[in-house]
Write a protein that binds this DNA or RNA. Structure first.
Lengths: 223, 223
DNA sequence: TCAAAGCGAGTGTATACTCACTCACTTAAT
DNA sequence: ATTAAGTGAGTGAGTATACACTCGCTTTGA
């Protein structure tokens, strides 16, 4: 099932209030492309104007500052990321138990991987922004993390009760899941060579299922 | 077999390079700190001078350009990263088989995690540099990747022959290992909250050992 | 006393942002 | 139907500023 691209939201979202012109659309697209290619700081507003086939003044007609322009690009993601993160963990979904571990892992990854794949550029821009802005990072985290921990936590506890998942502390389970996702994101964003991206999803699910399947040697071997 | 710590390399390196003045050391330190905090582009040379308690001209006495300064910071890492990546996979190490999977995983992670922990700031600077410079990224990758694939490959094949490791294609095994490392790096660099960093190493080893232990349900579940 | 290290005011340039203006188009009055 | 008035997206030369880098001078230390 196809998840809509954030870019497709551009028209809908922005035109709800005001009609967006062809040129303004071009500006958004050029900005996204350039920010993802060269980074925010390395992209000048005249670069953007040139790539969009527009005068520099036109960029500033709608967007007061360069940062505003970036925010405008990321707004659709911000608006849609919470439901996506929370999907499969709505009250409805929680009420029906997962019949197997693999069903759980599949449910977790399928949409999120599709989302990431469809929005690599946006993710790259977000990552750059957040990497060197501790305040914004914490702000974002404080909105998303507790929600995630709580919702995932209850699902994991359910699976534990059914003896379908390894008996590790929830935070370790979450860390494993997120690490795997991060590794995947890094490969996407950096265009690292490796397995064809199409097999990725199957790989992720296989590996995660294996990690989380309960077994005999599951003590954490620390020192 | 004892391996020298990365930290020791550093001390040697910075002090063995020609006599470096106290102020020049301060400049390097301030640059590293600021680049890691705010990013390269967002750090001005006057920021650096100020943080180092030095006039701006002093920065340029030794370093011709701002980029040169960054290179000077990364030089020690560049000089030592290859041996570190390749360690445990020298001819000597290859000749003695790993007695168990956990020995292998431990060998892989121990020093690398220590290295990452000791050089978070440098890694952050490298990551920023490489994230938006595809050319440099490929250049670096083309130096390291084949070496890694070859050396790890032969170790993995050995483990496979001894039935000590899951029978997955080597690239998937490598991807799992690297994903786990990347997730760890991300947590370090972004200072994400979570388990105390001290338990990390034990966690990584536990999880990776579990992933790679051969078992019954090891087919890759495609779609 | 000399060379190296340090200094900081000064310079050129890149670039984020402004503003007075154009022009295609719509509305409205005759 | 014709013309006048109004509108606002689009323009690009222009401005202010920040910043990388320079250079002639001063301080330090051997």
């Amino acid at each position: 099932m196809e998840r809509p691209r954030i870019r497709d939201y551009f028209q809908q979202d922005l035109s709800q209030n005001e009609t967006i012109t062809h040129k303004q659309r071009a500006i958004l697209q050029a900005s996204l492309d350039l920010f993802a290619e060269k980074g925010f700081d390395q992209t000048s507003t005249s670069d953007i104007a040139q790539r969009a086939g527009v005068a520099e003044g036109t960029v500033y007609r709608r967007y007061k500052t360069k940062a505003t322009l970036r925010d405008a690009i990321l707004a659709p993601i911000a608006a849609h990321i919470v439901p996506i993160l929370a999907s499969d963990f709505s009250e409805d979904a929680l009420r029906q138990r997962y019949p197997s571990l693999q069903a759980f892992v599949t449910a977790i990854f399928t949409d999120r991987v599709a989302f990431a794949k469809a929005n690599v550029k946006e993710l790259k821009v977000i990552f750059e922004m957040v990497a060197f802005d501790a305040e914004r990072r914490e702000q974002i985290l404080s909105q998303i993390a507790p929600k995630m921990v709580k919702q995932m936590g209850s699902v994991i506890n359910q699976l534990k009760a059914d003896h379908l998942i390894v008996d590790w502390p929830n935070d370790l389970i979450l860390q494993s899941l997120l690490s795997q996702l991060f590794g995947y994101l890094a490969r996407l964003m950096l265009e690292l060579p490796g397995t064809e991206i199409e097999r990725e999803q199957a790989y992720l699910i296989t590996v995660m299922t294996k990690i989380l399947t309960p077994g005999e040697h599951d003590q954490i071997t620390g020192q």
